[in-house]
Nucleic acid binder design. Sequence first.
DNA 1: CTGCATAGTTAAAACGATTCAATGAAGAGT
DNA 2: ACTCTTCATTGAATCGTTTTAACTATGCAG
Lengths: 340, 340
Amino acid sequence: MSGVSVKDVARHAGVSVGTVSNVMNHPSKVAPATVTKVQQSINDLGFVRNDAARQLRDGHSKTVGLVVLDVRNPFFTDVARGAETRAAQEGLSVILGNSDEDPARERAYLELFEQQRSHGVLISPIGDITARLGALRARGIPAVLVDRASPDRTFSSVTVDDVAGGRMAVEHLISEGRTRLVFVGGPLSIRQVADRLEGAELAARAHPEVSLELVTLDSLSVIAGRKAGAEIAARAELPDAIFAANDLVAMGVLQALMLQGSNVRVPEDIALIGYDDIDFAAAAVVPLSSIRQPAGMIGHTALEILLEEVANPDASPRHVEFQPELVVRRSTSASAVDAV
Amino acid sequence: MSGVSVKDVARHAGVSVGTVSNVMNHPSKVAPATVTKVQQSINDLGFVRNDAARQLRDGHSKTVGLVVLDVRNPFFTDVARGAETRAAQEGLSVILGNSDEDPARERAYLELFEQQRSHGVLISPIGDITARLGALRARGIPAVLVDRASPDRTFSSVTVDDVAGGRMAVEHLISEGRTRLVFVGGPLSIRQVADRLEGAELAARAHPEVSLELVTLDSLSVIAGRKAGAEIAARAELPDAIFAANDLVAMGVLQALMLQGSNVRVPEDIALIGYDDIDFAAAAVVPLSSIRQPAGMIGHTALEILLEEVANPDASPRHVEFQPELVVRRSTSASAVDAV
DNA sequence: CTGCATAGTTAAAACGATTCAATGAAGAGT
DNA sequence: ACTCTTCATTGAATCGTTTTAACTATGCAG
C-alpha cells in the first residue's frame, strides 16, 4: 500500500540500492543511461524519499526552527518570510513556532527542534534561555537570537537598537511640544519592551518639564492596547502623548480613544506613536506614526548568520544591529504628509 | 560531543536498551526502581530522543503540515493558531508553510510533508491539487482542505460560504443605496475570490439598476489594493461602492482613496467593504465594514477532522461549512456605530 | 515440592536511506 | 599481451529507536 522504498526502486530498475541513492544524491557518479532508467522507475512506483531515514543517517534534518513571540504580529511574519526566502535558497525549510509569549511553549518548541536535530534555531526569546541554547549548541545545533541580544553575547544575534528606537519616539513627541507622556507596554520581562522603555526614559529625563508615566500590559496585543486606551480615555486628566510598545498595542489604544462617546482627538488632544511600522499602521483610523524596523532583512540576516555558524561552528559570535527609523504620520503631527 | 544515544543511557544505568525505551514509552511495564534509575541516567547524560529514528520505526511523524496562501494575512495566522492549539492537545506540532499563492511553493511544501511522512496535512490550496493529495492519501497521509472544498468532494473540508459572503456584502452596499459597484480582487484562480465574486454578481443581478465592474489583481495584498485604489481614484467617473476581495486589499484601496491630493470621501463618495474582518479592520482610517469569518474556529475544526481521519481512514469525507457574518462600520455607513 | 502464572528484563530484528571499501569491466599506454 | 587507470556498480555496514518473542526469577496454589 504505502511503503515504496529505495529497495523496491532498485529491484524495479534492476540495479542496486546504492545506485538508486547515487542517482538522487550524486547523479554525476552514475552513467547517464542508468540515471534515466532509475528515474523512470522512481516515477513508475511513485517513490518519495523517507526523510526520517535520511536524517537518521545524516545526523541532521533539513529544517531550521524559528520561534517567535507572536505570529499574529505582522512584524514577526515578515521576519519569518525573510528567513524562509534565504532558507529556500539552501534547500532548507523553516518551521515556524509560536511561543505566544509563554515560556512553556517556548521550551516545548526548543525541545521539538532538539529532538528533530534541526539544522539550527532562530529564536526571539522571552526570558533568559542561554542555558537551554547552550544544550542545543553542545548537540551541534547553532542558535541565532532574533530581535534580542544574549546577555553574555555568547550567541550571535540580529537586533534593532530598541533603546535608540524608544528614544527617537519620545524625542519626536517632545519636539512636537508634548510633555505629559505615557508609555503603554509590557510585560517588561520582554527585553524589547524594557529597552524601548529605557530609551523613552532616557529621552524624557533630558527634559525636566517632561513626565513619563508607565502603563503596563500583560501582553502586546490589540486587545490589551484597547483596554489600556479605554482606561486612559476615561481619566479626568489626560496625558498629551502616548508611546505604545508596538503597533498592535497602538492600534488598540487608537480604537479605544476614537470610540464613539469618547471625545479624545488624535493627535490634537493626544499624540500617539507605535513601533514596528507594520503595513497596517499607514492605514489606521489616524495614520500611525511609528518606528520602522527592517523585519524581512532581520530574518534574512539571521538565517545568513546561522548558515555561517553551521559551516564554521567555532567562529566567534556575530552581532548585527540595525538602526530603527522614525516614520511620522498624522497620529503625532496634524500637518504630516502621511508616508506610505 | 553530540551523540548520546539510548545505548549510552542503557550502559550508564546498567540495563538494556529495550528497558530504556520502555521507561520512555511504557513506564508501567518497568519496575519503579528501574524507572528512577534510568531517568537519573537520562538527566545525567542529557539524553534527548532522536526523532528521526523514532519516526523511521514508527512510520509517521508527530507533525501536521499546514499550507496557507499568505502568512501575512491575519486571517490565516488566526487559522494557524486555532489548529496549533488543538494539535498541541494531542502532542502534535504544526508546521506552517506559506505558499504565497505560488503553485510551485505549494508543491514544494506538499513534497516536504510527504517526505516527512506527516501525520496529516491541512491546506488552503491554490489550484486543483486533488491528484497531489490523492498521492498523499495513498501513502496514508490524510488531508483536509481549509477555506475551500474539493471539486469532487473526495476530501474533507472546512469552509465558509464565500458565495453567501459575497452576496451579503453586495446586498449591504445596495441597501445603502449604492448602484455603481466595483469588485476588486484576484487572481480568479483562487476559489475564494471567484466565489465571493459570484455571490456579488448574484446579488447585483437581482437589481437591474445596479452595475458591477470587475477590477482584477494578481495578488491579494495591501500593495495590490493600493494600486487598484489609485487607478480608481483617478477616474473621471467614480463608482459609488467598492467590494474588496479581502481586508488586506481593502486597506490598500482605502489608503489610496484617502491619500492627500485625492478628494474622494469614504463612505460619502465611495463606500468600501472588505472580507475576513481581521483585527485591523476596526482600526482603519475609516473603520472598515467587512464579512467576518471564524478563523480560529476553522483551524480548530480542520484539525479535529484530520484527527478523525487519522483514527478512521476509511470514513467518508466530512464537509463543515461556516456562515459568514456582516459587520457594518463607517466605511459603508456614515452613521454606523463602529463595532469592535 | 511441583507446576504455573506473572512481572521484569533482555537480545535481536526491523525501519529506509546513505556511504564506503571492494569488485568488475573497459580503455589507454607501453 | 600485460599492467595501470578510470569509471560504474555493488553489497554490507551504519544511524538510533521501538517492538516482539524469549527468557529468568519470583511467588503462589495445589
